[in-house]
Design a protein around this nucleic acid. Sequence first.
DNA 1: TATGAATGAGCTTTCATTCAT
DNA 2: GATGAATGAAAGCTCATTCAT
Lengths: 201, 201, 201, 201
Amino acid sequence: MVLACARKVFSEKGYHSAGVSDIVEAAGVARGTFYLYFAGKRAIFDELLDSLFAELESKIRRVDPSAGADGIAREMAENVGRVFDALLRNRDITRILLREAVGLDAGLDRKLEEFYGRIAGLIERSLRTGQEMGIVRPVDPRVGALIVLGAVRQVLDHSLAAPDTTPDGEALARSLLDIMVRGLVCPGAISPPSGLSGSIP
Amino acid sequence: MVLACARKVFSEKGYHSAGVSDIVEAAGVARGTFYLYFAGKRAIFDELLDSLFAELESKIRRVDPSAGADGIAREMAENVGRVFDALLRNRDITRILLREAVGLDAGLDRKLEEFYGRIAGLIERSLRTGQEMGIVRPVDPRVGALIVLGAVRQVLDHSLAAPDTTPDGEALARSLLDIMVRGLVCPGAISPPSGLSGSIP
Amino acid sequence: MVLACARKVFSEKGYHSAGVSDIVEAAGVARGTFYLYFAGKRAIFDELLDSLFAELESKIRRVDPSAGADGIAREMAENVGRVFDALLRNRDITRILLREAVGLDAGLDRKLEEFYGRIAGLIERSLRTGQEMGIVRPVDPRVGALIVLGAVRQVLDHSLAAPDTTPDGEALARSLLDIMVRGLVCPGAISPPSGLSGSIP
Amino acid sequence: MVLACARKVFSEKGYHSAGVSDIVEAAGVARGTFYLYFAGKRAIFDELLDSLFAELESKIRRVDPSAGADGIAREMAENVGRVFDALLRNRDITRILLREAVGLDAGLDRKLEEFYGRIAGLIERSLRTGQEMGIVRPVDPRVGALIVLGAVRQVLDHSLAAPDTTPDGEALARSLLDIMVRGLVCPGAISPPSGLSGSIP
DNA sequence: TATGAATGAGCTTTCATTCAT
DNA sequence: GATGAATGAAAGCTCATTCAT
């Protein structure tokens, strides 16, 4: 209950502007009660982040390597689609993850990094699997994973700016993945320059 | 002078943890001197951001549409490379842009959005030009721009986690652009599903 | 409690020299506690003034018009006597009203003006009543009220200069009222010059 | 020049709100120049007050005891009239004397007290002279002087509240003096109560 | 278990004053 | 004489946290 209210408050006012007063007022409990359940403002934000991480990571299913090329592609698309769905539907979460939780302190930065690291790890493993199966091009899978992750983050971040738009998450995910999968350029349109073709060894 | 010190201080301690005391101490001036030149803590951060924006935007040259397919590709790669270079060499700036300036307040959020919006606009225009020339595939250029921007941000953000690594910016940029240009997947490896192939109309 | 201490502190050090620190120290509470009950330094001074106004105005009873000439004179004398008593006994209040509250800012100046305006209004009404009963000479009652008020203020203000004297308030009030009632000059001692005899029409 | 500007500034903004910046800006000199001529903010206010005191005291002529009853009355009336004139014409001065200079610090309070003391002394001496000549009733001349002084101050103070009114100083002075001279009450209207008739012995 | 009055360290900001030029 | 950039002490205020009830 208090956690849910804190989520709303943090999302609306931001971590620093949100006071413990705002949270307990929103939750309808006394100040003391707050400290009965949480070690402090920072601690409740920590817990909140943990729950958001768990919620998001639950949206991501491990890709089944035996599903064949098209199956793998579909599963990745579904993963991205589910994450998009969840975040586009809940601006609270998106705002907290992309804005309020950023740059608060070293501890939280590391926590965020670990979260994104886990997600990037999942993507990276899928890419490696794809490479082993000959589906994914021989690019640096670490970089590939960061790119996919960053692309998703930026599109979501962009959605925070337009408050009234309820974007079509599925279409957006499809458009995004199409670019990630096939690239921006028509095949054969540009010559493969020496430096541009290879992946990081 | 004070501005440069503020950049260092904000980057090291973060906006909220950094006090005006830290800045004036680092700059070796008196408290009052600070307020002689800046309206306050928030104001100096604003100026700092403006200068960083200007510095970064100066790294980006408009792509010459008459340069031919390979020329355009090279120019975009050089743009990305220059931005990577500048930011990988100056962790201060990277940290401030990607961490400390995020989620401070509505005004700064809008400022950041405008900055990223301008960059995305430049990329988008390049993509449109490429599409008119038949080089870039018929994807949604807005989404394409966000993806490129987000990919760059994520890779840079990732670099903040590893303090000691001095990454090879050029190689990273090449790797990143290779994926953006050609996509992750081998041509023909997966069948084009109805929803995955098209761009947003 | 805090208010009472503030009264002492403001009276001793003056509004500007008195810091919130002085007040909380005198009251034996923490800084934060102060701001729990008062919006700020200015606010507590406002409240203090309000309470002083109320206290003083409670000393003034409306003059009963049916009490006859001598009754009215006695009632007015008693009013002045009670105010004198209260203020001569409490140098704190006198000092705050006559010194510290003066010229602080436009808002407080207006507040003081309203207070003195109310008192002058009461006196003015008494004078009008007296005029209707044929007791008070046909002078401008507004000017008459200001004179009585000003006379009282000046005598009180004078008392602030001599810290050790505990003046006889009753005698002072009597002396003051005798002059106000009968004037300074022996009847018939000076010829009534054209301009000097009349009141403002 | 600087002094005149300071007078304006102090009158408009009040002592504490007026900064040295305001004064030097109004005077068109540099900060340093200000301190070349005045020891500080407090010092220039001191000088300003001194000049105002001198200006006002120059308006007051010693009453000639040999002028006869009517002459004395006329001279006192002229004194009051001149002071009224000067102050009603210059709200700056009135405001500074009655508002801004009050309650600033112990030193200034004493200075003001001395000024008012000198004026009260002049009035007191006139009253004593009048008593010796059998013109002034046997009241306490000190109290009488305070009353006259306070009456004048209050009427002037009242004029500060009404910014647009350009009051007729002469008529006001006449009205004021009529009341002071003849009293408020019709002769014989009230019985002289024991305590009310006498002066302080 | 729940309360909320009390706390106090720490913040940003102001402005009278100085002094090298 | 004149300047104005630099100073820094001191002010008012906030808010996460505690603890006696």
